[in-house]
Amino acid sequence: MNETHHLRRMTTIWVILSIAADLLGWFVLGPHMPPGRMTETAYHDQIDFNILLMVALPVVIGVWVYMGYAITVWSAKRAPDPVGGDAARGNTRTQVLWISITSVMTLAAAAFGTWALVVDHGSGGGEGPNPIWAPSGAAQAETAAFSPNSGWTPGQALPVQVIGQQWKFTYRYPTFGGFETSQLILPDNATIVFNVTSLDVIHSFWAYQLGVKADANPQVNDVAYTETKQLGSFMVRCSELCGIWHGAMYNSGQVVTPAAFQSWAQQTEAANAANTKLLPPFAWTYVPDANGANGGYYPDGKATPYSSVEVYGSKNPAS
């Protein structure tokens, strides 16, 4: 069998399997791929994943088909003696083609990833304190965060602060008086501005179905955006090792109708008012010390500050 026949056979098998795998991947698996379609960022992340999958499947199948063919056809029991010499040591056309194809694919993947990152405003990933790709309304939301009574109306972006600490996430709603709760309730059809920080070690806020992941660093405000599109509950997990109970650091949140959200937020603000007074004022980050995060409600029963010497006497705990 001459060279052309080998390549033609392999190519035929490869094309058939690749088309089948891609069709299966796009139409059967694709719509169910994580993180789902609950938000705009999740939807884009899913499309991004599926497009990479469409490219990856033919690559993997190509190498496997080639290897399978080689193992079957060119085994020592069957194959004629190979030919050595210069022709077997390299082939300029093959080498140039290989390098060109892999280079084009690689550059295309990088360009596509960058495009997806920019148009989707960071794709739900943590963009640090000064995001450069922000959705419209995000800036106003950040300003509104310091107007504790500004509330939220449909069409506005909603700022939510995520505070990680060993070993739970809590959420502050700065436009609703800055109340803090362990429930994460979000309105549907709204841009959400997550401001993620930590009080102790590094955590990572991973709202799986929302397509949002941002590290919670102490003294850093890591901002991530998303836009809710579907009602329902979603899972929140810590995805950065944060100590012994890292595995237990999870809860769930809910996307509800705008009206239900407003009702919940107002009720919670009222119910938590007494506690909210004792919290440190809303800030992008908090510096915990012996007095707590910028002061607060601590063991001596007073608000802030308290004297650790008064409380503990000479056995002053380390600050």
């Binding site: 994580p34 993180p35 960022t41 884009h44 992340d45 991004d48 994943f49 990479l52 993947a109 990833g113 997806a116 990152l117 989707d120 794709s123 739900g124 990933g125 799986y208 397509g211 949002v212 992941k213 995805s239």
Partner: peptide, 9 residues
């Protein structure tokens, strides 16, 4: 890929 990394990191 940064957008996919959000889910898989």
């Amino acid at each position: 890929d940064v957008p996919v990394n959000v889910t898989v990191h």
